[in-house]
Computed example of a mutant assay.
Amino acid sequence: MSNDEGIFGPELYEFLEELEANNTREWFDVNRERYEEDVREPAFDLVRAVRPMLEEISLHMTARDRKVGGSLMRVFRDTRFSADKTPYKTNVGIQFRHVRANDVHAPGYYVHLAVDSCFFGAGSWMPDREALAGYRAAIDDHPDVWTLARDRCQTDGWRMEGDRLKRAPRDWSIDHPMIEDLKRKSFIAVRDFDHSKAFDPAFPSQIADWCRETRPLMTFLCGAVGLDF
Rank of each mutant, 00 (worst) to 15 (best):
L19T: 10
A106F: 09
F193S: 00
E20N: 13
E17N: 11
H98D: 07
R170A: 12
G70H: 02
R80S: 05
D78R: 00
S82H: 08
L59M: 12
R167M: 13
L132C: 05
M73T: 09
F229T: 00
P10D: 02
K89V: 06
E180S: 12
G123D: 03
L72R: 03
S124A: 15
D181G: 01
A149L: 05
D194W: 05
G162S: 09
V92Y: 03
R100E: 14
F220P: 00
T147N: 10
G134A: 02
H176I: 06
V30W: 07
E56T: 13
F120Q: 01
G162Y: 05
A101W: 14
D128T: 08
E161S: 03
I174E: 12
V50I: 13
A149P: 11
S173K: 12
A83W: 06
L72K: 06
S58N: 02
F203E: 00
F120K: 00
L12I: 00
C118V: 00
A168V: 04
V92W: 04
H176R: 10
G162I: 11
V104L: 10
S71I: 07
G157E: 02
R97W: 10
D65H: 10
A101N: 14
G162W: 10
L72M: 05
R97N: 08
G134K: 02
D140Y: 08
D84E: 09
R34S: 12
D181F: 06
R77A: 04
D171L: 13
N23L: 02
E11Y: 09
G6I: 01
E17T: 11
T86S: 15
R215S: 15
F203D: 01
F28Q: 05
I57A: 10
D78G: 02
E17V: 08
G226E: 02
D228W: 04
D78A: 01
E180T: 09
W210A: 00
